[in-house]
Write a protein that binds this DNA or RNA. Structure first.
Length: 660
DNA sequence: TTAGCATGGCG
DNA sequence: ATCCGGGGGC
DNA sequence: CGCCATGCTAATCCCCCGGAT
């Protein structure tokens, strides 16, 4: 049940310029295609003023944002949760606990214990850091949600750019590490998802060899650079050189995705976009779904979604089982990812209440969104069921979820980590995979049957990309690709509509009217980057000469009990449960057709714009003739200038229009 | 990732 | 509102 | 001297913002 994906950038800010999201143009639809119940984005790069209905008022979903305090258009994290499946019991922002709940001046760390997630670093821990807590948490890099079963971190860890940022980066990781360890010591379980900006070891960076040669490092030294060393300490099976560091005597986290693919090469989540390194799969694995050791066997699958193009990152997900062992007792997962009394034996016994269940930090409680309903829904062509009671949502949505469950046998918490600022974020193309896997080594795997180098060209942003070719060193795991597809997506089409929420009630401006002003420019705009961890020239190292590192503590890599035969690309695939790769197959179909409507006068693809004017339609997006406005200043008919074509995105159904 | 340039071994 | 250039990130 | 292999460097990207139009 539950899966987790990580993704970055444009997905949140501007995902709908790309397939497959162009077609449905809603976050709910996007999440459904992802088959996710929890979705985590990093680098949302939005300011509060940019939050739109489409983002915040997603029917059937709650969202929790962390926005940077002063840097505009930078960083940012958001977690979406599917109401029908899970609902957090606490939500916080930041890693240190120094931030405050909306409209409050009491830090999370100063709240009564029963109201806080806890595990905050001690004052002395914070004091030893070169960067103070306020600064560490000023960049919108972390959202923390607590469910009864675990605490979920959605993190965008600082990148490894240049020395001027080292203190910040290591300070952040230090505190994050401390926090996680504390929570676990308190008996809580932890899921850590996001862009950690650390490649774990040589296997996780295509340029590891080159990087080592350049810096004159041995393999052991490579895993011992400060951030990487910290990370390896954290992970069971992590490669720790020499004595373990104080305070990190034991590993506490489990690298879920790696556990399911212990030796897989080329399993990367990030590629340098400037250099178009993705077609050649010269990348690094820096996005993770980790869980604390007590949760090791809670997952039935985990993988990257390398086929989702468009970002310099690809999503990573993990799928949680429907039933899990928790404190020695088997429980239905739904029972423990919702407030007590919400589910019993997997059956909902209390409805989700849009009016009461969202936690204070919920985006829906921001004044400009509170009590409102996504405008799109009101105008949706599909007669949405107009529940008058918000409590109906849950059950309605639950039906949808059940439908999905019947297909997949499980639902998923997905943490999508995609760079939200890369324009290409979602311009998915057919997944490429191949060849490091012994079973397919050497055989070029022309998935899309495009084999010339031209196909490796950068997918133009916004254009519906053509299928990329497979090269000799792409990702593995094509299995989902050849899998007979099931009707995954169609089952999602009946999205529950969120009813108008009750207008006025207990909400009292939990969110302040404005982002609290923060001290101006504490730091100058000096966070330049010099790629190091993941960038540098030279061989793409197909790994043949990789030095054999004694995997001393390799137990961490022994697959979890349910590890699938993931490395056999050509074998029969069990008609599995929930294989998100499977949906990619469906996506590839979508790629073939651009979905933009054509304008009346010119029959040219329209463009989308967002309504900015305050009022009824604020935040609503629409299609319009792409030509410039004529000299008359008005739309014209049958001239070279912009014609009067105007279609609300919510009214545009490309399939119907295309006759199929 | 690629292209382009510098270096150095070798005939 | 739109276009273009600068700045920043990676 | 030419030739080739090796090694290093640079540029490539994208987005957001703000000011000018």
């Amino acid at each position: 049940m539950l899966g987790v994906i990580l993704a970055k950038r444009a997905w949140v800010r501007n995902p709908f310029g790309y397939q497959p999201w162009r077609d449905k143009r809603s976050y709910a639809a996007m999440f459904d295609i992802l088959e996710a119940d929890i979705v985590v984005f990093q680098e949302t790069k939005i300011q509060r003023k940019d939050l739109s209905d489409d983002m915040v008022l997603v029917p059937g979903w709650d969202c929790y944002f962390s926005l940077p305090r002063h840097k505009k258009g930078y960083s940012g994290v958001v977690i979406y949760t599917r109401q029908s499946v899970c609902a957090p019991i606490r939500a916080e922002e930041g890693i240190t606990g120094i931030l405050c709940p909306p409209n409050s001046s009491t830090s999370f760390s100063n709240l009564p214990e029963e109201e806080q997630i806890g595990g905050y670093p001690t004052p002395s821990q914070l004091a030893s850091s070169a960067v103070d807590a306020t600064t560490l948490d000023s960049e919108g890099r972390c959202v923390v949600l607590e469910f009864p079963a675990f605490v979920l971190f959605g993190v965008y860890s600082p990148a490894n750019r240049d020395e001027t940022r080292d203190d910040f980066r290591l300070g952040f990781l230090d505190v994050l590490d401390a926090r996680i360890r504390k929570l676990i010591a308190m008996g809580k379980r932890v899921l850590l998802t996001g862009d950690l900006n650390i490649s774990r070891e040589e296997l996780d960076a295509a340029n590891a060899e080159a990087s080592m040669r350049k810096q004159g490092l041995t393999g052991l030294e490579f895993v011992s650079t400060p951030a990487r060393r910290l990370f390896n300490h954290l992970l069971e099976g992590g490669k720790v050189f020499g004595e373990r560091d104080e305070g990190r005597e034991e590993p506490v986290m489990w690298d879920i995705c790696r556990a399911f693919h212990p030796d897989r090469k080329g399993m990367f989540t990030c590629w340098e976009q400037k250099v178009n390194a993705r077609p050649g799969n010269c990348g690094a694995r820096i996005d993770y779904v980790l869980c604390s050791l007590a949760m090791k066997d809670w997952f039935s699958d985990s993988n990257i979604q390398e086929g989702l193009m468009g970002s310099d990152h690809c999503p990573v997900y993990a799928v949680m089982k429907d039933r899990i062992h928790i404190d020695g007792e088997e429980q239905d997962t739904k029972d423990v990812v919702n407030p007590p009394g919400m589910f019993s034996n997997g059956e909902r016994v209390r409805e989700y209440s849009t009016a009461n269940d969202p936690l204070p930090p919920s985006g829906k409680l921001i004044p400009e969104f509170f009590g409102r309903r996504n405008i799109r829904d009101m105008f949706a062509r599909k007669p949405s069921i107009q529940h008058s009671q918000s409590t109906d949502i849950a059950s309605k949505d639950a039906e949808v979820s059940d439908a999905k469950g019947s297909v997949n046998g499980s639902s998923a918490i997905e943490t999508t980590s995609t760079k939200a600022d890369s324009a290409q974020a979602l311009s998915a193309t057919a997944p490429v995979a191949s060849s490091n896997d012994p079973s397919v080594a050497g055989t070029k795997r022309p998935i899309g049957e495009v084999s010339n180098n031209k196909s490796l060209k950068r997918a133009k942003s916004g254009s519906s990309a053509t299928a990329p070719a497979a090269t000799g060193k792409g990702q593995q795991s094509l299995k989902g690709f050849f899998k007979p597809k099931s009707n995954t997506i169609s089952n999602y089409s009946g999205i529950a509509e969120e009813p108008v929420v009750s207008e006025a009630n207990t909400h009292d401006a939990i969110w302040g009217p404005d982002l609290e002003p923060v001290a101006e420019s504490l730091e100058d705009k000096h966070d330049l980057a010099t790629p190091t961890e993941t960038a540098s020239p030279l061989s793409s190292a197909d790994g043949s000469s990789r030095q054999k590192v004694t995997r001393s503590g390799t137990n961490g890599f022994q697959t979890a009990n349910s590890s699938p035969a993931s490395r056999s690309a050509s074998t029969q695939d069990q008609a599995t449960v929930h294989d998100p790769i499977q949906s990619k197959e469906s996506w590839s179909k979508l790629f073939t057709k651009p979905a933009a409507p054509r304008c009346e006068s010119h029959d040219e693809p329209c463009i989308t714009l967002l309504t900015k004017k305050p009022g009824m339609n604020l935040g609503r997006s629409f299609w319009m003739c792409s030509r410039p406005l004529g000299p008359s200043g008005a739309k014209e008919k049958n001239t070279q200038w912009r014609c009067q074509t105007f279609i609300w995105c919510s009214d545009w159904n490309p399939n119907a229009a295309n006759g199929g």
